[in-house]
């Protein structure tokens, strides 16, 4: 026969001990090493991170590479295994759990060209015919060919072009791409 008081005590105690073990202890151990380096994070990058979260990129792209010998991330050229210090104290954490698309922890080192990212965001099928990534047309302005002289539209393949129009990235697209390019574990952390 379980008594009410024992039940109550047991329920709270089991919870509290595990909470201490899995949330407070890691905070003490990890924070110590992570909080020290103070990064300068440009405005574009923090804004880009916000848009990355807003569009839910993390539901298809993990942002954590696995260490050598565990999985094939290193062999795929996705860079070394991620470290706690790679995340530049940007919250939320965005480690992710899915790889419907490739891992992004080191995307800035693999794809450093802005144009490539713009095209991929505007129309992923223009980069890879078989991609199942959603398009993000609301991050782009469609303007007439002669508007905003001096700025070239995206260099899209013929079938994705709109006649008489050119496609320009908005500020949000520029921030997001700045953030993606900042994801570089080769040079990001010493």
């Amino acid at each position: 026969m379980i008594r009410y008081s024992i039940l109550l005590f047991g329920i709270i105690a089991t919870f509290m001990i595990a909470m201490f073990g899995l949330t407070i202890l890691p905070k003490i151990f990890i924070d110590e090493g992570v909080k020290e380096p103070i990064y300068f994070t440009p405005f574009e990058v923090t804004e880009g991170h916000r848009i990355f979260v807003r569009e839910g990129c993390i539901y298809c792209h993990s942002k954590q590479t696995r260490p050598e010998g565990f999985g094939a991330d290193v062999e795929r050229g996705w860079g070394r295994g991620s470290e706690a210090t790679d995340y530049r104290n940007l919250l939320p954490h965005n480690l992710g759990t899915m790889r419907t698309g490739p891992d992004l922890a080191n995307i800035g080192a693999r794809q450093s060209g802005r144009e490539w990212h713009y095209i991929n965001l505007y129309q992923p099928r223009a980069i890879n015919e078989e991609s199942i990534m959603p398009p993000f047309p609301w991050l782009f302005d469609v303007v007439s060919e002669d508007a905003r002289p001096g700025r070239d539209g995206l260099n899209l393949p013929e079938r994705f072009r709109i006649p008489g129009k050119k496609i320009l990235p908005t500020d949000e697209a520029r921030y997001l791409v700045a953030y993606l390019i900042s994801l570089d574990q080769e040079t990001g952390v010493q």
Binding site: T23, P26, K27, A84, Y87
Partner: peptide, 9 residues
């Protein structure tokens, strides 16, 4: 939970 990996935990 104000650092990324701690927040992940």
């Amino acid at each position: 939970f104000d650092t990324p990996t701690v927040q992940a935990g």
